[in-house]
């Protein structure tokens, strides 16, 4: 029993997985539709963008920063692809790369202002959030656009139109970044920078590079999530993810997955499972006919409970129980 508890404490993600499975079992028992292939596709498609954005958010939170602009970067990226192909005559693949690069560059801007000009990232990215929203709305005149012809086929299918494309990309990204965070220098230095910024710099960690790099990863992932969403709903919507919705979902997923906002700890897998919990919850409540409103009630409670559990678990671990 003791061992079980210790293992549980060590793998904080396990508790989130248990919650996800528990919710799944519950919804399975109350409605047959839940486990149908079509519904599983729905869940995976709801989970993937949040999980992908959450990966970047976790990296940033672990390194002691936050990015509020990832959601609107997701809205901007498909428009960049649309402008590039339809207005500037750029071929399909370079246009998609350009859209991703836009996210990377916005991430770089966020990182530069935060690290070099020393503006707290909350403020930096709040500014970026509004600025990019303005860019999206003025350039698109707040109207949706169609998926450009050259990418509306095999490329579109690979990038989100196909049923399981979302899940595939999410898995690849989650596994890759999990390895990055836990098994590479980059990951170790990310934890170091978030845990003790001065100490990390003193020990020779290139703190500016690590932070700016993580902003760039987060921006790129935001852009990618926006692209796959656009291909899935088969339209380029200036309000993807409801503007800030995707960002808040990602932060919630990260927090539910055990990432501390103070920096220095957090896991990619936890963030992905957090996204899964949210997707299952929303989907299941939808199926059993509860209106969307109590969803927020539960989401709020879930965040509070996770945070309290986090603080409690951290205290237990600090007390040397693991």
């Amino acid at each position: 029993m003791r061992r079980v508890r210790e293992e549980f404490l060590r793998h904080r993600e396990a508790s989130v997985l248990v919650v996800a499975l528990g919710l799944g079992l519950y919804f399975m028992s109350v409605t047959d539709v839940f486990l149908s292939a079509a519904n599983l596709v729905n869940i995976s498609q709801a989970m993937a963008p949040a999980a992908i954005v959450a990966c970047g958010t976790v990296l940033l939170l672990v390194s002691g920063e936050i990015d509020l602009s990832v959601g609107v970067v997701a809205a901007l990226a498909p428009f960049m692809m649309h402008y590039a192909i339809d207005f500037w005559g750029v071929p399909a693949i370079p246009a998609i790369l350009l859209a991703l690069l836009t996210g990377t560059l916005i991430g770089f801007g966020n990182g530069f202002v935060t690290v070099v000009l020393r503006v707290p990232s909350f403020v930096t990215t709040l500014g970026t959030l509004y600025f990019v929203t303005g860019v999206v709305l003025t350039t698109s005149h707040a109207y949706p656009a169609e998926i450009p012809g050259p990418v509306d086929g095999a490329i579109g299918a690979w990038l989100g139109a196909a049923d399981w494309a979302h899940l595939g990309w999410a898995l690849v990204i989650v596994v890759f970044l999990h390895v990055v965070l836990t098994r590479t220098r980059w990951g170790l230095h990310t934890v170091a920078v978030g845990g003790n910024p001065l100490g990390a710099a003193e020990a020779g960690v290139r703190t500016a590079r690590i932070k700016i790099g993580n902003f760039m990863i987060a921006g790129t992932l935001g852009a990618f999530a926006g692209l796959i969403e656009a291909f899935r709903i088969h339209t380029i919507d200036p309000n993807i993810g409801g503007g800030t919705g995707l960002m808040f979902t990602a932060v919630s997923a990260a927090v539910i997955g055990g990432t501390a906002l103070a920096g220095g700890s957090g896991t990619i897998v936890g963030g992905a499972l957090g996204a899964l919990v949210l997707a299952v919850l929303q989907n299941g409540m939808n199926l059993i006919g509860i209106s969307a409103n109590p969803y927020f009630l539960i989401l709020g409670l879930a965040i509070l409970v996770s945070m309290i559990a986090n603080v409690y678990l951290t205290r237990l671990r600090r007390a040397g129980r693991t």
Partner: peptide, 29 residues
């Protein structure tokens, strides 16, 4: 350093090698 420059969240051995880690296959730690 006077403040030691240790990272509380990392293990002793990761602290020992911070900034000069050994890496192997595919540059994994």
């Amino acid at each position: 350093y006077q403040d030691l420059a240790l990272i509380n969240e990392l293990s002793v051995y990761h602290n020992m090698f911070l900034g000069r880690e050994h890496v192997g296959f595919a540059r994994l730690l």
